[in-house]
Computed example of a mutant assay.
Amino acid sequence: MTATNELAGLLIRAAGRDDVPALVALFADDALGGHDDTADPSALPDYLAAFDWIAANPTNAIFVAEIDGEVVGTFQTILGRSLSGRGAMHLTVAAVQTRADMRGRGIGTAMRRFAIERAGVLGASKVKLTSNASRTDAHRFYRRLGFAQSHAGFTLSLRSEASD
């Protein structure tokens, strides 16, 4: 599944293994994420293993947004189903990043629209996302796109903070 957008030259497509270094660079450049991501080449095998696992899972997908062949954004979708809600399917959007110097140009909006369209194609009745509580700008952005804050999230780390 690929899409082009009214933003000049923007293409959203499934990520490939060759995109992983560019995606890692996006995550490593994120001061608010708190995931301890790093562009150190010694960590690349960890990211490649994660990409391979995600790519092999039919309910998961990673996408890139690119302009003129350059990765400027990314997000992951995870299709889930719960017994509550009469077994409704939902699409969770995760690991959303837009390159810092490209923010405010409509890339995030295009990625969200793409994810929402994907949810409809997959038969999901709801699109979910989570966002770090410190990302107040992102929260305003999600509200402008029609998302409503509905839950409080909690995380329990099972690894030491240095290895998250």
Rank of each mutant, 00 (worst) to 15 (best):
T77D: 01
G9D: 09
V121A: 13
G106N: 00
F27M: 13
R81G: 09
N60H: 15
T130H: 07
F75K: 06
S84M: 14
D68Q: 04
I54H: 03
A110M: 04
L79G: 04
M111H: 00
Y142F: 15
D30Y: 13
V72I: 07
A22L: 08
T98L: 11
P45Q: 05
F75L: 10
R86W: 14
T74M: 15
V71R: 01
T77R: 03
A152Q: 13
A14F: 06
T92N: 13
A25P: 03
R105D: 05
R105C: 09
A152I: 15
G106Y: 01
A148S: 11
F154E: 05
M102W: 14
R86L: 15
L83R: 09
V71A: 01
G106D: 00
R144H: 10
D46G: 14
E161S: 08
F51K: 01
G123D: 06
A49S: 07
W53T: 12
V20P: 07
A3V: 06
A115C: 10
G108H: 03
R113F: 11
G106C: 00
H90E: 11
D101S: 07
L32Y: 11
G104C: 02
G87L: 03
A50T: 12
T98I: 14
L10D: 03
G146A: 00
R17S: 03
A28M: 04
I54E: 04
V64K: 06
V96M: 15
P21E: 04
A43L: 11
A148Y: 07
Q76F: 08
G146P: 04
R159L: 15
D30P: 06
G104A: 02
T77M: 08
D68I: 01
A95W: 07
R159Q: 13
Q76D: 09
D19M: 05
N5K: 05
H151Y: 14
S42N: 12
T109L: 13
K126F: 08
L79Y: 00
